[in-house]
Amino acid sequence: MEEVSITRSVELEAGVDDVWQAVTTPELLSGWLEGEVDVDVRPGGDGVLVEPEGTVRRMRVDEVEPPRRLALQWWPEDGSGPASTVELDLQPTPGGTRLVVTETLLAPTPLAAKASSAAGSRWDVRFLLLGCSLLRVAAASR
């Protein structure tokens, strides 16, 4: 099965313990995650992220393996968007820490039923081809 997911990897000039603090301490999370965070960082723990525009995002922590891995699920409380899983993996590097973030759709947004072949329907070819290249990148990085 092909998953709908995105991955980002960053090299941080900070020790793995400092990065772990930044991704598991609510006050520090609030500083970079876009919103106010309150979360009980243990497996099964609940959390909430109030985004700047007011969206309330509920969280449930799935995995906590200090200082290497944190996995959670989150979803907008009002059901305005899909639920997804977020995995944060930390690896010590000579220069600091590599943080790999993977967010994967859990319940995709309802999509239009099979599109009709209306002659007037227009779409952006570059966008489609970009999609295809993203899929190739996703496949190559597995």
């Binding site: 709908v4 899909p82 759709l105 995709p108 947004t109 999509l111 239009a112 099979k114 599109a115 009709s116 072949s117 329907s121 779409w123 966008f127 489609l128 970009l130 999609g131 993203l134």
Partner: peptide, 11 residues
């Protein structure tokens, strides 16, 4: 009819 793809790619 790439609309389904657009949705996933948009996300």
């Amino acid at each position: 009819t790439p609309e389904p793809l657009s949705e996933a790619v948009a996300w």
